[in-house]
Amino acid sequence: MSKTLLRELCFRWVERRGGFWIRSIFVPFTRLDVYVSLGFRVAGENIDLGNNNIDCQTRTIFHSTNVSVDMIYDELIKRANGSKQCSIDEFCRLYILLGLSEFLLPNRSGRVFLGLFKIIDNIQCLHRYDWGGVVYDYLVGSLCCASMSITNKGNSNYFCIVGCVYLLQMWALEHVLFAKTKGQSRCAKFPQILFWKDVKFPDSGVASTLQKNLVPLTKEELHQEVVKEALKEPCSGKKGKTKKIRELAEIVKENEALSRALDHQAAVIGTLEKVVSRLEEVLAEKENQEKGEPNLSNENHVHKD
Rank of each mutant, 00 (worst) to 15 (best):
M1A: 12
S2Y: 01
L6M: 13
L6N: 07
R7F: 01
W13S: 02
V14N: 12
E15Q: 14
W21R: 15
W21N: 15
P28T: 06
P28L: 05
F29T: 04
D33W: 03
D33L: 01
V36Q: 14
F40W: 12
R41W: 00
A43D: 13
A43R: 14
G44P: 02
I47D: 06
L49E: 07
I54M: 09
D55R: 13
C56M: 02
Q57Y: 08
I61W: 09
F62E: 06
S64E: 13
T65N: 14
N66F: 03
V67M: 04
S68M: 06
S68F: 10
V69R: 15
D70H: 10
D70R: 14
D74C: 07
E75T: 00
R79N: 03
N81D: 15
N81K: 10
Q85V: 03
D89P: 01
F91T: 03
C92H: 11
R93H: 03
L94G: 06
I96A: 10
G99T: 02
G99E: 11
S101D: 04
E102P: 00
F103N: 11
L104Y: 12
L105M: 06
N107R: 13
R108K: 11
G110M: 05
F113N: 11
L116V: 02
F117M: 05
K118L: 05
D121M: 02
D121T: 03
N122S: 11
L126T: 06
L126P: 03
R128T: 05
R128K: 15
G132C: 07
V134A: 07
D137L: 07
V140A: 07
G141P: 02
C145D: 14
S147N: 05
M148P: 00
S149D: 12
I150L: 12
Y158D: 14
F159P: 01
V162D: 13
V162R: 09
G163S: 07
L168N: 04
Q169R: 06
M170C: 15
A172E: 04
A172N: 05
L173K: 07
L173E: 14
E174C: 03
E174R: 13
L177P: 02
F178H: 12
A179R: 11
K180A: 10
K182T: 09
G183T: 04
P191N: 06
L194W: 07
D203N: 15
G205I: 04
Q211L: 12
N213C: 15
N213A: 09
L214M: 12
T218L: 05
L222P: 00
V226T: 12
V226W: 15
A230Q: 13
E233P: 00
P234T: 06
S236A: 02
K238T: 09
K241G: 08
T242S: 13
K244G: 08
E247P: 05
E247H: 12
E254Y: 08
A261G: 05
D263Y: 03
A266E: 13
L272R: 10
E273K: 14
E280S: 09
V282P: 01
L283P: 00
E285A: 11
E285C: 06
K286Q: 12
K286D: 08
Q289H: 09
E293L: 10
N295E: 13
N295W: 04
L296E: 11
E299H: 10
